[in-house]
Each structure stands twice: as structure tokens, then as C-alpha cells.
């Protein structure tokens, strides 16, 4: 059963079509990545799913039940970590987490344990009495996460939670999301950072201009695009005919030598590198370091969404 089921969702901002008959199905236990450039409709999708925004058309079901603005029983099973840090500046870390947890859990004793657990989860034990203004950007992001997950939700939406944080904090946040998933939470993760999505997501949707352009595992997506494997081999002295022999291999699309390095662009294939090295050994070519770079999610993303600049 899909834990999130969105069908034919249409959302307009005046004349602008923000979501165009958008469909989304997320299974329980997934870490689902929603990838897209700025303005592609990621946050709008989440806000519509959570009934914060009205929409023009479509059906939304969560946990198998229709989602309505007053579905507080469903909302209590959901955690949200918004893009902007949304906490009270006047409350300290513990008070903030307790407040947001209290919007879902009314029992104070139960809440105390949950707040302690959330503080430990994001590693803010030493900052429990600090107000947000005293925290660095990374610590604020961690507080934002603690506020969203303290009540132990079954489904958690992370909307670009690593914007403007340092690599250490980013790593800590991503590891935390993986732990939450390991503990049973289904995660919806929006970002435009490819490496993050590659690192944690079991399934990825690339969306742009309110449409789903591709959806699947990372390998599925890589297979969808024409961008192939790049191979580079350091070989300053190249015997005559070697480059042409390499170019004659059936999977090689482009080849060149700049005097020190051979550059090859190949179709995707499991044995490309072995075949190339075989040609060099046959011709007794002395070579140094070898680089093989399979297509990345970044290549997929750029090929699908285009390279023109966005807002």
C-alpha cells in the first residue's frame, strides 16, 4: 500500500501552472527523493499534500485515507522539517522542541522522554538551554529537525534541510535521516543537491515545471539517459594506430589524446574498461593512472531538466 498517493494534482498560481497533473506514490519504508531545480514545484507539492495550500484538482491520500485540512489524526502521524528554520527565537532549544512535540503529544511525561530523545538524536545536549540566536546555522538546522521528528512520526517530510550548512552538519543530518528510516520512518526528501539524494534515497523522482520527468532508483535513472561513461588514461607516448584502435571499439562514441591523456566517452556497459585496457596491453602501451567515471545523477538531472539557468 502506498503511504503517500497523489493523483492528477493540479495547482495554479494565477496563470502559472505550478503542478501539472502530478502523480506521486511512495511506499512505506522508503527514503524518497524529490529532486528538481528551484521553482520546480517540490515545496508546493509538499504544501498541497499537507493541505496548507489549496489546489485546483487532484486527489491526495495518506496512509490509505483521504487527506483533508482537518485530518488531524493523519497529521499527528506526520513530521515536517520545513525549508526555513521555523522556531521561536524567544524559547530555548528544549522549550522549542517541547512546544512542537506538544502539538502532537499531550501527555507531559511521555513528551519529556521524547524531547530528551530528540535532543540526543540531533546532538544538541550541550545546547539545550541555548536560544536559537546563539546557535550556528548548522545547529539551528538540527534544532529544526528535532522539532519535526520529536513526536516519532511514521512519515517525515524534509524540505531541503541542508541548505546553507557546513559539510559536517550536512553529513550529520543525512546520517540522522538514514537512522530515522532504519527505525521505521518513511522519508520524503526534497533537495537540489544530487550527492545527498544519491547518498540516502532508495527511490528518486526528478521533477521540473510541476511535472514528474523521471522516477526510479538511481540505477534506473542512469539507464534512462544517453550520457555515457567517461574514461581517462594517462599515456604520454602513444604508438601509432592505438587511438584509432580504441576508437574502433563498438561502445566508444568519442576519443581524443591531448599529448598526455587519452579521453574516451563510452556507451554504458559493464566491461568497457576491461576492453579498453586490453587494447592498450596488446599494443604494449605504457600507461599511468586510469580514471573511469560512470554517469552521475548530476548528469541525469542536467540532461533531463536542461542546462539553462533558473531563479
Amino acid at each position: 500500500m502506498a503511504i503517500v498517493d497523489v493523483r492528477n494534482l493540479v495547482k495554479r498560481y494565477g496563470d502559472v501552472l505550478a503542478l501539472d497533473h502530478f502523480n506521486l506514490q511512495i511506499e512505506q519504508g522508503e527514503v524518497f527523493g524529490l529532486l528538481g531545480p528551484n521553482g520546480s514545484g517540490k515545496t508546493t507539492t509538499i504544501n498541497c499534500i499537507l493541505q496548507l495550500l489549496t489546489y485546483d484538482k487532484g486527489e491526495i491520500e495518506l496512509f490509505g485515507q483521504p487527506m483533508k485540512p482537518t485530518s488531524y489524526d493523519l497529521k499527528r502521524r506526520i513530521g515536517v522539517v520545513p525549508q526555513d528554520v521555523a522556531v521561536f527565537d524567544e524559547l530555548n532549544v528544549r522549550e522549542n522542541i517541547d512546544y512542537f512535540c506538544g502539538l502532537y503529544v499531550t501527555d507531559a511525561t511521555e513528551r519529556r522522554a521524547l524531547v530528551d530523545e530528540a535532543i540526543a538524536f540531533v546532538g544538541l545536549e550541550d545546547y539545550a538551554k541555548f536560544r536559537p540566536k546563539k546557535l550556528s546555522g548548522g545547529l539551528k538546522r538540527r534544532l529544526n529537525i528535532a522539532c519535526g521528528i520529536a513526536h516519532k512520526p511514521e512519515l517525515i517530510f524534509f524540505d531541503e534541510p541542508t541548505v546553507a550548512v557546513d559539510p559536517q552538519s550536512r553529513n550529520s543530518i543525512l546520517e540522522g535521516i538514514q537512522r530515522l528510516n532504519a527505525e521505521g520512518a518513511t522519508v520524503v526528501y526534497t533537495s537540489h543537491y544530487m550527492e545527498e539524494v544519491e547518498q540516502i534515497c532508495s527511490r528518486i523522482m526528478i521533477m521540473d515545471r510541476g511535472e514528474s520527468l523521471a522516477c526510479g532508483t538511481k540505477d534506473d535513472l542512469v539507464r534512462m539517459v544517453s550520457t555515457g561513461e567517461k574514461v581517462e588514461i594517462e599515456a604520454p607516448d602513444l604508438p601509432d594506430g592505438t587511438l584509432e584502435a580504441l576508437g574502433g571499439l563498438p561502445f566508444v562514441r568519442r576519443f581524443s589524446h591531448d599529448g598526455t591523456t587519452i579521453h574516451l566517452l563510452c556507451d554504458n556497459g559493464p566491461h568497457n574498461l576491461a576492453n579498453i585496457l586490453g587494447v592498450l596491453q596488446e599494443r604494449a602501451v605504457v600507461f599511468g593512472r586510469v580514471y573511469s567515471e560512470p554517469p552521475t545523477l548530476n548528469d541525469v538531472f542536467l540532461e533531463i531538466t536542461g542546462k539553462e539557468l533558473r531563479d
Binding site: L50, I78, V80, P82, D84, V85, A86, F88, L103, Y104
Partner: peptide, 16 residues
């Protein structure tokens, strides 16, 4: 919700 991120965040919660 339309005034501040905090308002939007609170509007998504499980409390009416």
C-alpha cells in the same frame, strides 16, 4: 501561515 515560516510550520501540525 502566510505571515511567517513559524506560522506555516504550526499550521501543518496535529493541533487544530
Amino acid at each position: 501561515p502566510n505571515i511567517s515560516p513559524l506560522g506555516a510550520r504550526r499550521a501543518l501540525s496535529g493541533t487544530s
